[in-house]
Design a binder for these strands. Structure first.
Lengths: 239, 239
DNA sequence: TTCGGGCATTGATCTGTGTCAAGTTGGCTT
DNA sequence: AAGCCAACTTGACACAGATCAATGCCCGAA
């Protein structure tokens, strides 16, 4: 098992506690008990330290991943170093499908991350005669595509203030799927990550947060924001 | 058959000439002869006049489409009318999958368009026990997702000149798949469409074309451009 | 052959966001 | 408890691309 920060210890523990909590959301969420047992035998449970890469763009793609715990940033780079974050992955998300034999983007852990890793060969053999699994993968791909299209609209046509507001709303809603509804939105990623996701600079993101706070729409708290006026806020994000 | 500009005439002609020419590229490209025959019985061949909608965002999505002939623009609108074109569909492309029961974007014909239309019910029944068909749909979704991610990088992090150059290069390469390699790149869409695809204004697109021509990278011709220095041009598009 | 109307180009000016340069804050290390 | 460092904020200024306003160019209709 080369280049893993933490070797694959304590799998049994993962299998019975952490892993199961996101299973209904994950790619394997609709497998029968027997199928799931077979599926688990293909999986390696891998833990990544903060900032550690899961995989990198242009690397030969031998594995796919189901994110179990933590948050990952997915991004592409231009030759001169400009970065675009194409998404943040949450528990339940499925990573690593690519239209070529190499990864089409890079992924790294934001905080500590745990994944289920599958080598492509065994994974493909497992799914190839399981229509319901293939349909689930289609659902996942279609949902991702929908998110990507929303993001194109945001990147191409929204102002900085609209970008930040829309980001906070959609992040709040995505978090709700895994952690339930909360009043304060936790932001595990830094300002630079938000900037690179929204096609802005870190300074503009910072100024925009401050502006939204001055306008009494949010309060900035450590590691997140509290939304004060959800009505007005959702309106700003939509328009 | 409500609201179709041209009723469904001459299906046999489509089946044996036009249709077949893109079949290897299309979703149905790997069906066995028997399967394909069954599949064709589910299809309506529909022709659309220039500018006519195939479907609109938020409409209940009862059908999916395989584009056979012509080019469609796919776009999303903000409430105040700002538009983002999320892609141009070419023959062989598969349209209409959405993460919700409604279309997540609008599509309309640029020139004259011909599609294979499938109602979702029969379509889903046809594919649900055909793993190779499901895998093909996965390939299509994954390819689209990859394109969407490239476009996010373009929208978020490239300059106007880089956007236009990257657009021309990728459009030239996509056209090559259906019409073969040519020296001049035909642009069936107008400047406003290009602007709305690249997150720019029509004036900036126009000025950028002129600038690329002054720099002797392209020549502007009716309905397209001729690329003079592919080497230098690809470099500009990549960086 | 002229007219009209869309589409594209070009010019002048404005502005939102980027860039550059200090500060500030808060959490860790020693 | 002091000192450090990374992450964030704030301010002053610059500039790429938007906006506003003509003008040009085709092509189809009469």
């Amino acid at each position: 098992m080369p280049h893993l920060a933490f070797p694959n210890t304590n799998c049994e523990e993962f299998r019975c506690s952490t892993h199961c909590s996101v299973r209904p959301l994950a790619i394997c969420g609709e497998l029968s008990p027997e199928e799931h047992q077979e599926f688990e035998r293909l999986a390696q449970h891998v833990r990544y330290a903060p900032k550690e890469p899961l995989f990198s763009e242009d690397e030969v793609s031998d594995s796919v991943f189901s994110l179990i715990e933590g948050i990952a940033r997915l991004y592409k780079l231009l030759p001169d170093g400009r970065r675009q974050i194409i998404g943040f992955a949450l528990p339940g998300d499925f990573l690593g499908m690519a239209p070529t034999p190499r990864y089409s983007f890079s992924a790294d852990a934001i905080g500590t991350v745990v994944t289920c890793r599958f080598f492509k060969g065994p994974f493909n053999r497992f799914i190839e005669n399981k229509p319901h699994m293939l349909m689930r993968m289609n659902e996942f791909a279609t949902r991702e595509l929908g998110q990507a299209q929303d993001q194109m609209l945001l990147l191409g046509r929204r102002s900085a203030e609209e970008k930040v507001a829309a980001f906070l709303v959609s992040w709040r809603d995505r978090l709700a799927r895994v952690e339930g509804v909360t009043k304060t939105v936790t932001l595990p990623m830094g300002r630079q990550d938000i900037a690179d996701f929204l096609g802005l600079t870190i300074e503009t993101v910072s100024r925009t947060f401050t502006k939204l706070e001055r306008e009494k729409l949010i309060v900035i708290v450590p590691d997140g924001v509290r939304v004060l006026d959800p009505k007005r806020f959702d309106a700003l994000a939509a328009a």
